[in-house]
Amino acid sequence: MRNAPTDPGPLIPRNRAAHPVAYDPDYKTSVSRSPKWPLLSMESTITEETGPVFGHGLLGPLDNNLILNFTQGEAPAVGERIRVHGRVLDETGRPVPNTLVEIWQANAGGRYRHIKDTYFAPLDPNFGGCGRTITDDDGAYEFMTIRPGAYPWPNRANDWRPMHIHYSIFGSGFGQRLISQMYFQGDPLIDLCPIAHTIKDRGQLDRLVAPLDMAGSRPMDYLAYQFDIVLRGRRQTMFENKPEGM
């Protein structure tokens, strides 16, 4: 018996070696917030294979434009104008269409519009620092924003975060949920950042570094960076039957 057409298939087990370690004393906050017990590993169930669906009707016209969305188009944010775009795929190479992508970031001076950010770089009155969009049928997405500034943070005596944009991606199942960060090609602070280096596989860390994309930029307007994202895939096979003997 084939799966019903509505069965999207079990999730491929997560390759934990592709991810950061939970406990890393160089990132001091992780010391008291990392579980010591191993995770309980099991095949996904309907709970992880299903997830919320957000329609394009959710979006306002400026939701993916961080230069304009805080003032609803009244006045542009200060900073170097950039376009960030890419595709969301899964581990089998299939596009992930119609999935919500949310981003947040510091302003051009490295300051967040957040009550707990006490860095003395000035707030930009025209910049909120968040945006969202939904991937198209091809899994593609794009944002207009300004290049975020690097900023210092209390960890070791003189730690600075490289320029980065925080990403939150849903996928089609709750078990695909992912939060990550995009870095910028050529930023020397990446090599010094203890948060970036919670990822111990350098090849995996490099996948968070977006290359400059001159072909995707617009002359006399903005530079572009390309950031592709891969979510967990699903096992899809005609042999996806009940276990033998059941």
Partner: peptide
């Protein structure tokens, strides 16, 4: 093998609220 590797996670950080629940 025609397989991609999942994008690695990073911490949501202290300011996750401004992005997800502004």
């Amino acid at each position: 093998l025609r397989r991609l590797t999942e994008t690695p996670s990073q911490t949501a950080g202290p300011y996750v609220h401004i992005g997800c629940i502004p």
